[in-house]
Design a protein around this nucleic acid. Structure first.
Lengths: 246, 246
DNA sequence: GCTGACAATGAGTCTCACTCATTTATTCTA
DNA sequence: TAGAATAAATGAGTGAGACTCATTGTCAGC
């Protein structure tokens, strides 16, 4: 009974300790949000004292960023893998919207942290994390660009704005859910977004399509009329040299 | 010289003091953001001591909310007035998007506070301010609803999603500017948004505006589709020799 | 078994939001 | 006009939490 080990603490290798702190931080940040998360609690759950956390992380914010970066990296990989199996720009666009919604459903607290604490801070653009996020949101632009080349989408779609529209829309739409209020119907949401978006950007292939709705038909007619008129004006000009037509 | 007034402080009526504190708070919050704004500095600029601020406001956050509410109320009034002079749903929709962008250009710091510190807090839904914001964002739904009745827009537009799309898109698009980076071209942005949005929701009036029969419309659409498709294919080919176009 | 490297500690410091007992100015009343 | 009642304003706390640092403890390699 006398010879209790005089050991005062457990000494771990740097990376193990860092890992433990990151896990604890993820937990606490997700539970409490950034402000209300106390570094002392993170330390406690990681089995260390507060000062130790500051040995490995410059600040509470640096710790948050590390947590988010870890999470994000995995996500970008997942997307790349999943997208590989989907054919057709429209389907791919749909998938990416659906997948983004799915991520929000699965990790509302992490999304909240990302939207509120990371992305909206002034230093955001200097972060490594910024790169990951750009890569993530570039998916959607690449997909639409493919779609343009494949003639599935209008050629004059402003890609960055489209990206902002999709992500911004989803963020607004899901804020309730992220804040822990109400449900989120993914399928309905993705349908509605695709509906507004595609009737705007889809380049409808005429012909084969049976049973188009009247409004689609009208929209298409108007678009075509305008386009044909423009083309005809161009063709009218003597200096335009076009071969194989007329 | 002896008889300097023993007056230790200036005593003002409640509402004057509250006004002074609100002005000072607006300044400091806008300059520093919420977190970095010290109540002591707000007090100093208002010419009082810190404790006085807490006599009139329950907390720092309550002070922020009061500041935002004042600002917001004025804005809703402005919109109502301006909108009265604009005819046509499409023009009205365009105006409200433009006006929202204008507000961001004029008050980036306040918008930042609103987006980041107010709207994204968990208590947001319990606030009076929430009512003002709902009223504000309802403009856009009312306008589109009018447009549907006037047959300018598709009848199946999901209004709340449209609202989320517009505001979300604008928020994403303008975040750079709000964070003090880069410029914001309002007119380009509004054009791009209207382009994507309206080609989606506009209910095009067919050709000569006269009631064309359905079959005529279909036939015309088919003819145009085929023609346009053929033209576009031609234009896509690198070897097609076209000048003055593209 | 020593020793050097470094993991871990814990007792601070500092900044802030927020409190409260007390002081001071103004207005009401007799 | 003196004194009381009311309300404005003070400023010295308190406590919480981020961050620091001199010191202590552990272990791997010699």
């Amino acid at each position: 009974m006398a010879a209790t080990t005089p050991k005062k603490f457990v000494r771990l290798a740097r990376e193990q300790r860092v890992g433990a702190i990151l896990s604890a931080a993820l937990e606490v940040f997700a539970e409490r949000g950034y402000e209300a998360a106390a570094v002392s609690e993170i330390a406690e759950r990681a089995g260390v004292v507060e000062g130790t956390v500051y040995k490995y992380f410059e600040s509470k914010r640096a710790l948050l960023l590390m947590v988010m970066e870890q999470w994000y990296e995995g996500m970008v990989d997942d997307y790349t893998r999943d997208l590989a199996g989907i054919v057709g720009s429209r389907q791919r666009l749909r998938f990416i919207i659906w997948r983004h919604l799915r991520t929000i459903i699965d990790n509302p607290q992490l999304c909240r942290l990302l939207f509120r604490e990371v992305r909206s801070e002034l230093d955001y653009y200097d972060l490594d994390l910024h790169g990951s996020i750009r890569r993530y949101s570039k998916f959607i632009m690449d997909i639409v660009e493919e779609g343009v080349r494949a003639n599935e989408f209008r050629s004059d779609v402003p890609l960055p704005l489209l990206r902002d529209m999709v992500f911004g829309c989803i963020e607004h739409r899901t804020w309730n859910y992220i804040s822990g209020r109400g449900e989120l119907d993914i399928d309905e949401t993705v349908d509605q977004i695709m509906s507004i978006l595609c009737s705007g950007i889809a380049q409808p292939q005429a012909g084969g399509e049976q049973a188009q709705s009247d409004s689609d038909l009208r929209a298409e007619t108007k678009r075509l009329s305008a386009l044909v008129t423009r083309l005809e004006k161009l063709l009218e000009q003597p200096e335009s040299k076009i071969e194989g037509l007329r």
